[in-house]
Design a protein around this nucleic acid. Structure first.
Length: 307
DNA sequence: TGCAGTGTTGCTTC
DNA sequence: CGAAGCAACACTGC
């Protein structure tokens, strides 16, 4: 699932490839009646306006904020993409083919990773001036795409409610402690709250807590100073490790060349239910519980809750 | 075969 | 106010 490291990898990839290209055309088959009257491209009327604005514009650069992708265009507009569960951007040579009477499908032209990267789930295509395509593959069609003038960016609710960026230098232990001291509830829930810290999802929160030696149900108000410091340093280390591994492909995440990330090979807790804990001399067995409706995997031996 | 599980987020309901 | 549950969708695994 695209969390901070996956979105980071994607953004870096788009900047390396599609930046500087002009969007010649845009195609989509995201539409469904459910989205009528909504401000996103799954609403056919919104897509029409979207298409008008982006066609002919140049991609100046791409940014990340939390799990959101922000694409800056030469005409002063910004495309906002949240990939949600199964979305990922791919870049390369694609061609459109007709299936049946009127179903259009996009397929990678060349053999290789792009070819087997969920081509049948491509629901959004930007045709670029270099002859290549920037496409969004999204199996479950949960992704959200909208557009607005750059000066309206601060008003976007997807952006303005977000907590600080955990990997920025300005995100110091002092700030971290202050933000968390104002919160209550299980630490797992707080880490997943995008208004507290932006970019952490279920996989990385499990790994952060495993590395910190803290129980996912640990009430945040009763976290000691030592534990607080442990969470802070693990959070930075694990997210950076995720970036170094080019993201996590437990599910369907791919980088823009269709390549898998490798973080799933380094999991210590996430989806390791029943396996022996890899911490030295620990001997615990990973268990799975539900924390505010989300699955949490942890080692009951070295991740203990305190009163 | 069928149904729970998967995990992100906003919306509805209590 | 917060929580719990569900919807959006499609595939995997038991």
């Amino acid at each position: 699932m695209p969390e901070l490291p996956e979105v980071h990898t994607t953004v870096k990839g788009i900047n390396k490839t599609a930046r500087g290209s002009v969007i010649h055309a845009v195609w989509s088959d995201y539409f469904s009646n459910h989205y009528r009257n909504k401000k996103e491209i799954k609403n056919p009327l919104y897509f029409k306006a979207f298409s008008k604005v982006v066609t002919g514009a140049k991609i100046i650069g791409v940014r990340r904020r939390g799990k959101n992708i922000l694409i800056d265009l030469s005409n002063g507009s910004v495309i906002l993409v949240h990939m949600k569960m199964t979305g990922h951007f791919l870049y390369g040579a694609y061609k459109k083919t007709l299936v049946g009477k009127n179903k259009e499908v996009w397929e990678a032209v060349e053999e290789g990773p792009l070819k087997d990267s969920f081509n049948r789930f491509v629901h959004l295509v930007f045709s670029l001036s270099d002859g290549k395509h920037l496409v969004l593959s999204d199996m479950r069609k949960f992704a959200r795409i909208s557009i607005f003038p750059k000066k309206e960016e601060p008003e976007q609710k997807e952006i303005n409610g977000l907590g600080p960026e955990p990997l920025e230098k300005e995100f110091t232990y002092k700030k971290f402690k202050k933000i968390l001291s104002e919160k209550k509830g299980p630490i797992k829930k707080v880490l997943l709250d995008q208004t507290v810290i932006a970019g952490i999802g279920n996989i990385y929160s499990d790994e952060i807590l495993w590395a910190s030696g803290i129980h996912p149900l640990q009430e945040i108000r009763f976290l000691g100073n030592t534990q607080m410091k442990k969470v802070f340093s693990s959070l930075k280390t694990i997210l950076r490790k995720g970036i170094d591994f080019r993201g996590d492909s437990t599910s369907d995440y791919r980088d823009i060349n269709g390549m898998r990330g490798a973080f799933q090979g380094a999991h210590m807790a996430y989806r390791k239910t029943g396996q022996v804990c890899k911490k030295k001399k620990c001997g615990g067995k990973i268990v799975r519980i539900l924390v505010s409706g989300r699955s949490a995997h942890f080692c009951p031996v070295h991740q203990k809750a305190i009163e």
